[in-house]
Nucleic acid binder design. Structure first.
Lengths: 169, 169
DNA sequence: ATGTATGCAAACCATTTGCAATGAC
DNA sequence: GTCATTGCAAATGGTTTGCATACAT
């Protein structure tokens, strides 16, 4: 995947943010940013920590949490809390807006490209509120669990019928 | 507020759910439901616990968590995790669909009546996914914080100007 | 040289869990 | 009478915090 250009852009954006807010430009911070923009999709703190530990640059959990806070603040990362106890994070720059389909049965999270549910025109209607980003979570039952549930119900129906017949005797 | 009719409806719905799933109809469960539908807006576990403690019916935290799980499952309550570490909950029945505006600066959550960003027609497009409900979270800066921020920036600019003048000397 | 940022380990705290006692069925 | 449910207290685990050390400025 050739995303060196993307990485340069986010690095520049991060540098701007750090300088503007008088934060230090430490190698740890850039290493975290680089690592996050090396993979797609959602990640959680623990996996990021382990993944970086195995790479050339290890950082402490404390630093990870500190850095994520900065990345959230400057809009390079987005945070999600879908319902499990762990927070999930996601690249925000160069990542097309999408909704999240969350299965209430198995917990799987799928991305759903939707584009413009929330159009700029609609954003304008929100007077007196400066929108940074938005998250759309759609909860329900995924196709896999739906099939499993249907199969289950069919089975139960058969059993019920059997019981009815037994009772009739 | 006359919501005795509403309470009867949700009570009936809860009873249906409990019977269908062969769960017991304990007084604790109905007390929790009743308490939740006695107030509007968001609440968290701790406030619910304390509020019920002061009322005539006290339940343990364990039971509270158990019962909320049931209420979530039968769709009478919705759970939100806006970013803080505590989950927030909300009545779902008779509660018009609305988005949530969350201020990244002060954490305040405001409801935003929107109606139908997510229309039934759009839901149909989600093949192979049975939608139960959805949550729209719009993050940004609220008007209060926006004003504060502007004031702050104005102040900094004045200081910068002063510094420039000093340097020029 | 100064003081912010890091790493470590301990603390925190919402939520979950184990288990004996209770009470819905 | 049976077994799901309750209440209590202890355990869990993601996240935060305090503090000594390191290092960006």
């Amino acid at each position: 995947m050739d995303n060196s250009k993307l990485k340069d852009q986010v690095k520049a954006k991060f540098t701007d943010y750090l300088e503007l807010n008088k934060h230090r430009k430490t190698p740890e911070r850039y290493a975290v940013l680089d690592h996050i923009y090396s993979t797609r999709g959602h990640f959680e703190m623990d996996s990021l920590y382990n993944s970086m530990k195995q790479s050339s640059f290890r950082v402490s959990r404390a630093t990870l949490y500190n850095t994520i806070e900065l990345l959230l603040d400057c809009g390079l990362v987005v945070k999600h809390q879908f319902g499990a106890n762990v927070s999930q994070y996601e690249r925000a720059y160069g990542n097309e807006n999408h909704d999240h389909l969350i299965c209430l049965s198995c917990g799987e999270v799928k991305e759903h490209k939707n584009g413009n549910l929330f159009t700029p025109a609609q954003q304008k209607k929100l007077q007196r509120f400066k929108v940074s980003y938005y998250s759309m979570y759609i909860y329900g039952i995924c196709s896999k669990c739906l099939r499993a549930k249907n199969a289950e119900e069919k089975k139960n129906k058969v059993i019920e019928n059997k019981n009815t017949r037994i009772k009739k005797k």
